[in-house]
Design a protein around this nucleic acid. Sequence first.
DNA 1: GGACTAAACGGACCGCAGTCCGGTTATATT
DNA 2: AATATAACCGGACTGCGGTCCGTTTAGTCC
Lengths: 198, 198
Amino acid sequence: MRPEMTPATAAERSDAARNRERLLLAARELIGQGGAAALTMDRLAEHAGVGKGTVFRRFGSRAGLMLTLLNDSEAAFQARVLFGPPPLGPGAAPLDRLVAFGAERIVYVLEYGDLVLAAEHASRNRFDVPAAALWNRHVEMLLREGGFDSPEPWLMAGSLNATLDPERLLHLVREHGVTGRRLSASWRDLVTRVVRGA
Amino acid sequence: MRPEMTPATAAERSDAARNRERLLLAARELIGQGGAAALTMDRLAEHAGVGKGTVFRRFGSRAGLMLTLLNDSEAAFQARVLFGPPPLGPGAAPLDRLVAFGAERIVYVLEYGDLVLAAEHASRNRFDVPAAALWNRHVEMLLREGGFDSPEPWLMAGSLNATLDPERLLHLVREHGVTGRRLSASWRDLVTRVVRGA
DNA sequence: GGACTAAACGGACCGCAGTCCGGTTATATT
DNA sequence: AATATAACCGGACTGCGGTCCGTTTAGTCC
């Protein structure tokens, strides 16, 4: 949301940096106590001893804050997918990488649950968020490498990714008692059929 | 949400019925003018000359209101799927019915756009709404009839349905200029591979 | 050190969905 | 027609995410 376009962006002012630290600390504290639901912007501001406007200038929105909180683990996950060891990382057969990707993604979503959910509630995007676009391209690439010939691999990749929608996964787990293992198996079944099916 | 359990439910009181008509009329009017976004519960109440509490007692929530507004077209669609002519209705081969189901569902979602979106924003459900459950069972049945042998047809049906998520479809159409035709083709590709792929 | 300026600050304010409860009214009963 | 009662009604109220704008302050230049 914030432009931040010029390369030589002036360093952040010291009070701004201090407040960001305070806010992130307070945010993790609130979430630690009462889950993501306990993190309202008003309470966060008060808890961090900061004005509400400051919270929004720093993070743009509640979803932006959640994204920031998830940044580290998300980056770690991305690194594992892009550069880590097979079968998740490069080196394995495309289908195996696809299977591993879904399985790990499911584990990730189940682990960070509410945070991921809240991060997706950005007003406009949810699909154009950088991470989502990355997963789309990743799956598309794996499909192509796997000899997938179809008019629109990009749409197919989007369909497969829709299957991993956090809201859906969490709903299945929480309301229907489906285990992560079963979800992974279903994903494996799905992508295997898609890649192999003529 | 409302119990309404006893079979011999007393008829609705006349003033309640009158207000419901007023509200539905006003709702369609507001949507007609400014789209679904223009339909806020306050404005609706004012426009219908009714208190806000009345709106919520009638429809439970904004999503509930949207569901009511969609009720007719949704029922018509359900009837076509369950009892209508093939290939959407019974009589055609399962795979053909599956393909037709996706195609028609896409047409439906694109036609009613914002309404469907708003109807899904129920606080808790979105997946357990009766209609969604019906589509899940429907797809599961078609998979089974199509000779789909897999440990969990129900999860597979859910995955396929996730592909038709209105938010996703509308996003692709509105932000990426994807046509309904391409979406249908992609769906056909997907279900064909899933059913055929061993 | 003093003056200047752009950035950061804070909290009042907005519109929203949804809740609550004291007052009102339609309907059944006699 | 009078009474009783359960359903209905309205709108003040809450908590939320998000915006706005007058005020303060950190960093810079003389």
